[in-house]
Each structure stands twice: as C-alpha cells, then as structure tokens.
Design a protein around this nucleic acid. Structure first.
Length: 272
DNA sequence: AATAGTGACAACCGCAGAGTA
DNA sequence: ATACTCTGCGGTTGTCACTAT
C-alpha cells in the first residue's frame, strides 16, 4: 500500500526547534487544541512537518511533562516494567506520569542498560548474565520475579509469590522524596491489583501515581489531585517556564499562573 | 589550549495499525 | 473490500556539552 510522505519534503525545516517555533506551536495548540497534526504546521505558520510538530509537542512542550533525570523510584519502575513489557516504551511511559516514551527510551539506553550490565544483569532478558552463560537452568522464576530480588537496594522480599515490603505505604508524607518514591514503588509492586492491571493493559496506575505523587508541593494542595491546572492553564505559564524547565519553578507558581488568564500569557516575556 | 572520546538528549525515519471514505 | 490518511511507536542518528588526555 503506497503512502504519501507525511509532508512534502521541500521547504520543510529540520533540526532543532527555535524558541520562536516553539512559541508558534504552543500558541496554536493553546488556541486550537490538538487536531490533525498534518494541518498544524500550515495553520501555525511553521515550516515543519506535522509529525515533527507532534513530536516536539509530546516530547518537549507538553505542559504536564516532568523535566530532569528520572528518580530512583521511577528508574526502578521502568526496569520492572521493562522486564514485563520489553521495549514497549509507550506502554512503560504511560505508567510514569509526566514522562515520555522518548525520554524513557533514552534513559534506558544511556543509563539503565549500563547499570544493569554492571550489576551483572542482562538488560534484555533481565536474567543474571552468568546464569545465562550457564545455559537454560530450568529456573522457575520469571525475569520479572528475578528482578524484584536483590537487584537493587529496595527491601522488597518475595516469598512464595507474596511480595512483602519492609515498610508499607504508611510512611509520613513529610519524608524526603527519594525515600518516599522508593516506598511508592514498593507499594506499587506489592499491590497485586496494580501489577495485574499493568499486565492487563489497564490504566489505573497512572491515576494511582498521580494521586500518590510525592513531589514536594504546597501543603494546602498536597492531597488535592485537582490542584493541577488543566493543560490550557499550564500552557499559560509554559512560555515562562520552557526555557528553564518546569521544575525550576516552585509549585506555588501555579497560583500566580492560574490567576493570570490566557490573554495575559499571550506573550509576556517578563517576570523572571 | 587543542583534540578526542563519551554522555545525554532532541529529533528524524520508516513502519504498522487504526480509522475512514 | 479497498485505498488512503493519520497517528503512534520503536530504532537510530545528530548535535551539543562535558571530560580526559
């Protein structure tokens, strides 16, 4: 079946996006929403192909993205999910709110892969490397099960198919975030229904993670999952944030942002 | 100071599947 | 049923920054 190229290659710009192009794309999506990517460049006045616009938006401009390195807990979750799902980055990414498949894929290739090899674990099969060398030892444990054993520092112990976490999700929310995230992961891994839903391709984990998100945030909003502004609202401050990364801003900036309306975003370049 | 090597991440490419006329 | 479009996915490449020599 013949396919047209996604765009006519002539006159289409490639390579890194400029701030100006970003702004055009954000403005367009903010105004019109995400629709028909093929039409976006023309309508937004961009000399890019639609695919490139979509990628730029989903991987970089989307206001709900987290920036920065994956945390220990996120990394651990990626490893665990990879053991179960393989290179299905989009599926893995869907379990990590604010992370993109591209980001996870990159992180896997540059960090995790090497880390696992260093630890003597095959990053593809998640089997111990030396074990693989010594042939098909008729082990009964799945790669995933293998993985949740002392591969890491998490104190997750598995006995007779029951995963026990040393400390369950009863910890105080005031603890430091990496510790909390470890506990978060432990509680996810020890929650059979959540892990089952991962297998069954359902999506509650995303919501669960959002609800359980332990990112330090303003006390009065901590337990309110609705405190996150809509993406339209997020876009409002994106212009301000994008050059620095969302997490260079305190969450309390949401209040300011929410109070400023879409017209004010418009193209304010000040207030740094 | 110059150069090579490496790491990190953004962006591109081609393919496949879903949707639609 | 078929042809076609659009979107999403995974693999790969390109580019820039940093470090080692």
């Amino acid at each position: 079946m013949g396919r047209q190229p996604c765009c006519d290659k002539l006159g289409v710009k490639k390579g890194p996006w400029t701030a100006e192009e970003d702004k055009k794309l954000i403005t367009f999506i903010l105004t019109n929403g995400q629709c028909c990517w093929r039409a976006v460049p023309k309508l937004a006045g961009l000399r890019r192909c639609g695919k490139s616009c979509r990628l730029r938006w989903t991987n970089y401009l989307r206001p709900d993205l987290k920036r920065g390195l994956l945390t220990e807990a996120e990394e651990q979750l990626v490893i665990d999910l990879h053991a179960r799902l393989g290179n299905r980055w989009s599926k893995i990414a869907s379990r990590l709110p604010g992370r993109t498949d591209n980001e996870i894929k990159n992180h896997w290739n540059t960090h995790i892969k090497k880390k696992l090899i260093k630890m003597g674990i095959d990053p593809i099969t998640h089997e111990p490397l030396n074990k693989q060398a010594s042939s098909n030892d008729s082990s009964t444990s799945s790669p995933a099960e293998n993985f949740s054993q002392p591969v890491n520092n998490h104190e997750v112990k598995e006995t007779d198919g029951v995963v026990n976490s040393e400390e369950n999700s009863s910890s105080s929310p005031a603890e430091n975030s990496s510790g909390e995230e470890s506990l978060l992961l432990d509680s996810i891994c020890s929650d059979d229904s959540l892990m089952n839903s991962i297998w069954l391709d359902e999506t509650p984990l995303v919501e669960a993670l959002w609800e359980m998100d332990t990112t330090p945030i303003a006390e009065n909003t901590k337990n309110d999952i609705n405190f996150m502004p809509s993406w339209e609202d997020n876009c409002a401050w994106l212009f301000d944030c994008q050059d620095f990364g969302i997490h260079d801003f305190g969450f309390n900036c949401f209040n300011e942002i929410e109070s400023s309306t879409l017209q004010t975003i418009g193209i304010k370049e000040n207030k740094h």
